[in-house]
Amino acid sequence: MLKLIIRRLLGMIPVLFIIITLTFFLIRLAPGNPFANDKAFPEEVIQALNKQYGLDKPLHIQYFNYITELAKGNLGPSTRYAGKTVNEMIAEHLPTSLALGLIAYGFALILGVSIGIISSLRQNSSLDYLSMAIAMFGISIPSFVLGPLLVIVFSLTLFWLPPARWGEPKHLILPALTLSAIYIAYIARLTRSGMLEVLRADYIRTARAKGLTESVVVLRHALRGGIIPVVSFTGPALTFLLAGTIVVEKIFVIPGLGRIFIEAANSRDYFVVMGLTLFVSILLVIMNLLVDIVIGLLDPRISYK
């Protein structure tokens, strides 16, 4: 196991290097520039700004400079926010995305797995159909529709919760609910199908034959294998939640990484886009590593040689 972790972490370096390189040139190929404005700046101002940020140098020199700074842990300056560095921006906004993402996913995990288990145990019952219909509902309603609907019901009609903004626990509920809906649905469906596969497996039959109680069979034995698709799904899903969620952060005016990213992309804030992409990549690799470890623990049949 330790060998696996070390190998994967070492394997991360070339992967990240490829990602950085591809992203660096990809975003430079995109039309536009960091100092484009509705009212165009005077030509000499744009030149001065380019010089200030080292964007006047040939691209390969810029790339080299970027990598050099990166090696020192410096993600570069923001061209949109004068005087801000990318490091500062990630540090400022990560806690928000982390809080929102973890709460939303935790909620989705608990609810989704429960629904999935119940559905699988009562396969083809009306309870099963109802749960799956609700799950489907969660999938077919995109967050940009669900968010406003929840706001209309809970904020503007019932006056229970604030319609937007951030800072107090009450601000967390609607965005977390909006975010988790689709994940509840995904997880419920994946759990159900995973459980259905496992519940028919021989070792479960054996366990039942041994006279173990149903709850022990389900929760101790079946769930271990049945939840594997959910665990696989969690890697990328959680990464994207933690990296910030553009739509929900926009609707609820939440100062998370998603809004930073979209704003940076729209204004070609090159270093911010690079920094966030790198951050997400590292997160993804780590998440997938964790996923593989968890799957290995859950299912002893899988070997990593």
Binding site: P148, V151, S155, L156, F159, P162, P163, A164, R165, K250, I251, F252, V253
Partner: peptide, 13 residues
């Protein structure tokens, strides 16, 4: 987000 503006305004925020 313009709809958010309207919601917050309506709620008195």
């Amino acid at each position: 987000d313009n709809p958010t503006n309207v919601n917050l305004y309506k709620a008195g925020e």
